[in-house]
């Protein structure tokens, strides 16, 4: 902790450059799309992991916030001519605010009850998205027309799938960077104290309410950004992507990947999107992936609290984990 340019960070930047340049040369269109999705959900998983690792709080509603971010991005896409990157940032920020608002009544809760509240929220949003769907260029506030979706803009420099993949990776890396900065500055210290004891944290002058809300807002920001990026990647969104069960799965995979480092978020994204795509490509049933996820979750909870990332980083070196 403390050094920004630790060994792991540098390795990460190296990997990023490799992924930006080398992978598009080696992979077909299918896998570029899959990796784009994986990167998007890695960003969202990083938000779940942040709240769990720093505050010990379980959030099963991240998938709902991804949907909210996607909804805002699509709504603005059709209603305005704003540049796409600005759209993504607006969607992320608004979702962060919404995340914080939802967190407000939940602040006095932790543990099981908070997890249950988030589960209820996820279930609510599932029904809500089903009923109102996502804007596709139609009229009115909800913007839903009975036709195939009108164009969802991508930035001029990222029109192609490969370009958009790079665009997504850069957002993901920036997201990880923002989390990393938080961890080594005042919010990170405040979170650590809150996790130990809220009373003690308050006694030493930490604004507990603010910093807890801040964590939720940051997590929401990442979810909203992910949702907006997803809308651009797919060209539309469908309510079926935002079921409460998916929220459960996303949290589970964040834990399996490891919540203490960005490596874990990437593992979570890859497990969530790349593994099923690989299985599908090999003709294996998605049910097999489900069984593996379940077993991996139980394994991670019982014996490997640092997740797969912990094992990777542990094997790498002892000197420079960045959290």
């Amino acid at each position: 902790m403390g050094r920004i340019f630790s060994y792991a960070t540098l390795t990460g930047l190296g990997l990023l450059i490799l992924a930006l340049i080398a992978l598009p040369l080696m992979l077909g269109a299918l896998w570029i799309k899959v990796l784009t999705s994986a990167a998007i959900f890695a960003l969202a998983a990083a938000g779940v992991a942040l709240v769990y690792a720093q505050l010990g709080l379980i959030n099963l509603a991240q998938i709902a916030l991804i949907g909210v971010g996607g909804w805002i991005a699509l709504r603005l896409n059709y209603a305005t001519d704003l540049p796409v990157t600005l759209l993504v940032l607006i969607a992320g920020t608004l979702t962060g605010v919404i995340g914080a608002i939802f967190a407000l009544p939940a602040l006095r809760m932790r543990g099981l009850y908070l997890a249950l509240v988030t589960l209820m929220v996820a279930a609510l949003f599932q029904i809500f998205f089903n009923a109102f769907q996502f804007p596709n260029g139609g009229e009115g506030f909800w913007g839903v027309a009975q036709k195939s979706a009108s164009e969802v803009r991508r930035p001029g420099f990222a029109e192609s799938d490969v370009g958009y993949y790079r665009y997504t990776l850069i957002f993901m890396a920036i997201g990880f960077g923002v989390i990393g900065l938080h961890k080594i500055t005042a919010p990170g210290r405040a979170w650590a104290m809150i996790r130990q004891s809220e009373a003690n944290a308050m006694a030493t002058g930490v604004n507990v309410t603010l910093y807890k809300l801040w964590a939720f807002a940051l997590s929401g920001l990442l979810a909203g950004t992910a949702g907006a990026l997803l809308a651009g990647a797919l060209g539309q969104l469908d309510a079926r992507s935002f079921l409460a069960g998916e929220g459960i799965l996303l949290f589970a995979l964040a834990v399996v990947g490891g919540v203490f480092s960005w490596v874990g978020a990437i593992v979570a994204g890859l497990l969530y999107k790349l593994l099923p795509a690989l299985f599908n490509d090999l003709g294996l049933s998605a049910d097999v992936a489900m069984i593996i996820f379940g077993a991996a979750l139980m394994h991670a909870i019982m014996t490997a609290p640092q997740g797969i990332a912990g094992q990777i980083l542990g094997a790498f070196n002892r000197g420079g984990s960045d959290d």
């Binding site: 379980i58 799965l249 589970a252 097999v288 489900m290 069984i291 379940g294 979750l297 909870i301």
Partner: peptide, 12 residues
């Protein structure tokens, strides 16, 4: 949360 893992296995 651990029972969620069991749920996924049974579902699969």
């Amino acid at each position: 949360v651990a029972t969620l893992g069991y749920m996924l296995i049974l579902l699969g």
